[in-house]
Nucleic acid binder design. Structure first.
Lengths: 271, 271
DNA sequence: CGCTGGGTTCACTCACATAATCACAATAAG
DNA sequence: CTTATTGTGATTATGTGAGTGAACCCAGCG
């Protein structure tokens, strides 16, 4: 990756962090110069000279740039780490406020009864999916069957939750597609049943150009399932995890997956 | 603050965190409901029903909402903490990338010689100002005079820097306007000279309605100064710290402040 | 003095993204 | 079959930001 695309990438990032195009370009320009005038900035960035002033003023109020009021004015960017910290903190503060504000709102719903059958929900994003996985394991009463399609899906937190489930009498069954994980899991969860393969087809479907793998497959108490798939979408690193999660013993999706899992299980289980 | 303004505040925050208006409104609506249909969301938020679908789809890809594909579709928001964490993490990742990317760019400047005289820079934002304060104390050779107008400006980090400066032979003089801080500072910096008052006028100018106080006043080696003021701007908590920072013994600003500080100092110093 | 030229600010146009509304297809209920 | 409700797509407004040029200010200089 050459330096030009670094520029563009930095500019994009800054825009995602809430700066306007001119602001982002001006800041990147100033990052390359120990200091600069409007003219200089305009030359090495693509910002029209007459707009450099607005942009830099905004940057100053955000604490990213210092201004020397002389003729001509001179500008300089703060240190990189300082800039990054400033921006990070800004968003941290916002998420904190959001948390507090939402908490103050929430209890405002006319709680109704809802039938708990046949639901199928879809969700996406690693964090959301991880979170629901955890929750489902936690609420298991009887049995947890989990197929781990990818080493990274087996986190230490998940391990703890599984151990806790086992400790309260839930039978834990773990399916693995890669051999490497097996030892670790067997060591972590001595009471669990661990099996390998029987489900290789879950892995990448090499025939289609589709780069999709099943990452997690969870069946709880025979009536709730969660399936997540991982897409190595597009050439760039734009990867994304998607999942569906269903409830209800007679839910079609649940039924199918239950069937599949027990099939893979029966032919491979080891005590 | 009633609940209605909580809503608005939450919506604003979400927009600042990168959501569109409809997305923000729909999310807040879902926060109040255990789950909801497009119609319900449209009713309690101000989002046109036909737009709820798009908005919620976007929220789903951001990991903030789960969708049940039934008829009618049902939506639910993830837990508040989960949502806040998801958003925070998103921005943390971005600032990290930014840091890395900028580092890769920086060495791209034709380093020129610059005369180091008579500069006056302005900067704003607590972090930027704190950072420059630190830097100036660190580069002191001979003398540091610091007036602390506000307890919060005396952080533990600053204390360490001042101690370090003292240890390498720099004479440290601290001015204080509130008595409460005095003990602490004298204990922290036994070698420093500490004086109180003589500079009360630095504090709030009660006659003008203006809520502005001088927060820090720093003179380094008699030739570099930094003055920061704190505005309790506007009725709302919209506060902001602004500063100027100047270099050069014969710089007019530096000269004036030097004069002022030594005036306050001479009449009050204690060994 | 008035001119000239760079530096700076401001006001204006244009394009694009988003908000808002509508028309229509699909589905379920009566 | 009719009707109401749900979902999708197309279309029209509106507002924000990018891009451009005119006006202003203030040197220095003829």
């Amino acid at each position: 990756m050459n330096d030009l695309s670094h520029h563009e990438q930095a500019i994009e990032l800054l825009q995602e962090l809430g700066l306007k195009e001119y602001e982002a370009k001006a800041f990147v320009a100033l990052t390359r110069l120990p200091e600069g005038t409007a003219k200089e900035i305009s030359e090495i960035s693509e910002v029209p000279r007459t707009r450099v002033y607005d942009a830099v003023r905004v940057l100053e109020t955000k604490g990213l740039v210092e201004i020397q009021h002389a003729n001509p004015q001179r500008f300089r960017a703060v240190a990189i780490d300082e800039a990054a910290d400033t921006l990070r903190r800004e968003y941290e503060d916002r998420t904190d406020s959001l948390r507090a504000t939402l908490r103050a709102i929430e209890p405002a719903a006319p709680d109704e009864e809802t039938e708990v059958t046949h639901e199928v929900w879809s969700l996406s994003g690693g964090t959301a999916i991880t979170s629901r996985t955890r929750q489902l394991v936690d609420e298991s009463d009887d049995e947890v069957v989990l197929v781990i399609g990818d080493e990274s899906a087996y986190t230490s937190e998940l391990r703890e939750r599984l151990q806790a489930a086992g400790d309260r009498g839930v039978s834990v069954v773990i399916g693995i597609t890669e051999g490497s994980l097996r030892e670790r899991v067997e060591r972590d969860l001595p009471d669990a049943r661990v099996f390998v393969s029987g489900l290789e087809w879950l892995h990448s479907s090499a025939e289609t150009g589709d780069e999709t793998v099943i990452r997690r497959l969870l069946l709880v108490d025979r009536n709730t399932i969660l399936v997540s798939s991982f897409h190595e979408d597009l050439g760039e690193g734009h990867e994304h995890e998607q999942a569906v999660f269903g409830r209800g013993f007679d839910n079609g999706l649940v039924a199918i997956v239950r069937r599949l899992m027990y099939t893979g299980l029966l032919s491979n289980v080891e005590a």
